[in-house]
Design a protein around this nucleic acid. Structure first.
Lengths: 335, 335
DNA sequence: CTGAAAGCGCTTACAG
DNA sequence: CTGAAAGCGCTTACAG
């Protein structure tokens, strides 16, 4: 029932090769023939079959994006950047949601094996580098977004810089005892952010003090949760040390931390990380990552790679920026 | 470079037909042959080429989901329901993000014309019914999610019931002058929700009063914005009428309305609509729509349709439920 | 400017 | 239980 190139060719009184040329703007076709073909195609609702075209030409003009959690602010921003660049460069974007069921890598591998696209963007998937290495054998362009790899192109954020910016700012305000409310200390971004924290202390001649680092007990989502932030702040308030400001490794933890403070008279200037949409509501000073830009650059990088494959590994690091709102400007208020 | 069925057939010393049968679990293949084929395929990383398979067999085992805004709570919940049902019924899901650029219908039509999938789910797209009618000519199963159609299968929420539930609850608490902070009065869901509001008033013998309906001036996103809610509440506070409770057509408007109230001593019990994730934080009583269930049912409906196409039009309406938190339980406090 | 024909990587009757 | 062959709907040298 669906129309094929043969139907159009017959109606227009030309060969299928000519119809194909019209739709691909390739070769040379007499203007009148072209118009006729286009008119008929439009009337009957014909469009080249994506699979047939992809099979015959190798070129699919499709970028496929694999992502675990589709509905958060982070991904929405990254997607916007990707979408923009992909469209401008005349590709189409297909998204596949990778389900959190333990076999992440198998799901990714399956999609890639099936050869859906000209290139793949793996966003926030955090696979092990050895797993990524195994993808090389499929011999197709793949870029990693929001992570780094030794085997595949990547675009990532500079988490060291983020921790550094937040801490430096607090130091510049005269605070000296800067506590950290941290998510899982083994998580890569956390490690990096803390590295930035130490770097800032170091530059200001302040010694790093282990007893100022507080972690919640809840370790779901690597401790990037409200509950974990709440717990960490409770520990801070009951500790012997007397911090005068606080760096929190994520906004969502800061929400929990603020709830903990609200129950008491205790107040501490805070800077956190992520710039979630709620952060503006509650006046959270935070480190913003230009997610849109990350997506944009990643799409560009992948498409470049498609056009010159293979080639030497490319990796790009995007700098975060500090956003100051109320939470860092309040006066500390001790027990 | 990528492996094909011919490579596997040669290595295994069988014909390509046999390899095909192994991968499709069709026909009968000697167990030992099957094992051998599978072992070789796994070793070299072979998997049938999606396009070639789709072209040859007509059956693609793909459902494609078209959606305008990917990153909101609503879609994430709907997606979860869809994903679950789709996987259980052995299909794969591809998502295409429809960009808000005025040519929504053209984008949708383009995807469908290209025959990517066995069936399509159009989520929150709100196309005109005449446009949907035009999709019939592509002769492929399509279901509408979060809207209703006379031409295509659909799953939608019962917005009348939602307005009715919220209003009835406030009436049951003894309130009699129930104001409405409304988004665009011409929007379909708003009309429905207000119809439910009137129904509830009616059942309780209370006359509908036009001067209790307040709309913001901001009409971006059909007035489903914080700003619009803020403006509407400002109007309410400055009006002559003296409402004792309030139904707001969305949570996001309620956020704005609450900000307006916070600037004054004015307080009004509120119930809104949507149950956004922030609603729990701020204690908003609201109407929840089981989005997960909607997705689940829609996927099921589409796949049924794929298996018996064509057939008589199916449409399903999902009931919302009331969630009571603090915002409706406070005492009114007049100027 | 246009057409005939081979080929892309599969599936699926048909025959054995 | 297995293979040879036609066909899915296109693209693309090649020839004219």
């Amino acid at each position: 029932l669906a129309k094929t190139i043969y139907d159009i060719a017959k109606s227009a009184g030309v060969s299928i090769a000519t119809v194909s040329r019209v739709f691909n703007d390739s070769g040379t076709v007499k203007e009148s023939t072209k118009l006729k073909v286009l008119e008929i195609a439009d009337r009957v609702g014909y469009h080249p079959h994506a699979y047939a075209k992809g099979l015959a030409s190798k070129k699919k003009d499709i970028i496929m994006l694999l992502v675990p959690v589709i509905s958060n602010y982070f991904f929405s921003e990254v997607l916007e950047g990707i979408q923009k660049r992909v469209s401008d460069l005349d590709y189409e974007l297909n998204i596949v949601n990778i389900i959190d069921s333990g076999d992440t890598f198998a799901q990714v591998e399956r999609v890639i094996k099936r050869q859906w696209a000209d290139g793949y963007l793996l966003v926030s998937l955090h696979l092990e580098d050895e797993q990524l290495k195994r993808l090389l054998r499929y011999d197709v362009p793949i870029s990693i977004v929001d992570d780094t790899s030794h085997y595949l192109d990547s675009v990532d954020f500079d988490n060291i810089e983020g921790g550094y910016l937040a801490t430096s700012y607090l130091l510049s305000k005269g605070y000296k005892q800067i506590a950290v409310l941290s998510a899982n200390l083994d998580s890569i971004p956390v490690k990096m952010r803390l590295q930035g924290y130490r770097k800032a202390l170091n530059e200001n001649g302040i010694e790093y003090n282990d007893s100022l680092i507080f972690t919640g007990d809840e370790m779901e989502r690597d401790g990037f949760t409200e509950k974990s932030g709440y717990e960490a702040m409770m520990k801070l308030m009951n500790a012997d040390s007397e911090p005068d400001a606080c760096f929190v490794t994520s906004d969502i933890q800061a929400v929990g931390a603020m709830k903990a403070m609200e129950k008491t008279d205790f107040r501490l200037p805070i800077i956190s990380y992520d710039n979630l949409s709620i952060s503006e509501y509650i006046g959270l000073s935070t480190v913003n990552q230009p997610m849109n830009q990350m997506g944009y650059r990643a799409a560009e990088m992948l498409i470049n790679r498609i056009n010159e494959f293979p080639g030497s590994l490319k990796s790009e690091i995007i700098k975060p920026e500090l956003i100051i709102r109320e939470s860092s400007e309040i006066k500390a208020q001790q027990r």
